[in-house]
């Protein structure tokens, strides 16, 4: 195994192990709220005052596009850090293996929400969402490590600790 391959194994054993625990925690049903199983609130802090984050109670477009599938709330962040923009799915997503499979294939609604929150933050703070692709690149050798990294990269805007 080359250094990249073994390096990926190290990453998998170390940070990946911690990440896996977080993933499993995240896909498990949340605590009961009034008898309902709810997802955790996902939150970003936007470096703008509340009235600019939700003018006249309107949510930023990526969140508004999720309609009634999400609850949204805002509150001022302490220390003049802006506004906390929080959202959660009204219906719990599947846990366990089905949930993990949905995350791997990019079909988990939590990923959609995570992406919507990140895009909302960028639109509010910067005015547009940063694009990276297409980026110039040379010949992509087909290797298992490369395929894994491509998959991880495709999910990386929709996954994470948010």
């Amino acid at each position: 195994m080359g250094r990249v391959g073994s390096g990926l194994v190290v990453a998998g054993v170390t940070a990946g192990g911690m990440a896996l625990r977080r993933v499993l925690r995240a896909v498990a049903p949340g605590p009961a709220h009034g008898g309902l199983s709810r997802e955790r609130w996902l939150v970003v802090t936007v470096a703008l005052p509340l009235e600019e984050v939700a003018p006249q109670g309107r949510w930023p477009e990526p969140l508004a596009a999720l309609g009634d599938r999400v609850e949204v709330r805002v509150r001022p962040a302490p220390g003049d850090k802006g506004t906390e923009l929080a959202a959660r799915l009204r219906e719990a997503t599947p846990g366990g293996l089905p949930g993990a499979a949905a995350r791997w294939t990019g079909e988990d609604p939590q990923q959609e929400l995570r992406s919507a929150l990140r895009r909302s933050k960028q639109l509010l703070e910067v005015g547009e969402v940063l694009e990276v692709e297409p980026a110039p690149h040379g010949h992509r050798t087909a290797t298992p490590g490369g395929a894994l990294l491509e998959k991880v990269t495709r999910l990386a805007g929709r996954e994470g600790r948010l």
């Binding site: 911690m18 960028q122 940063l130 694009e131 990276v132 991880v152 990269t153 994470g160 600790r161």
Partner: peptide, 15 residues
Amino acid sequence: DNGNANPAITEALWG
């Protein structure tokens, strides 16, 4: 917060 389009990788590594 807005310079990395792949935040999940370093969030898993570093928090």
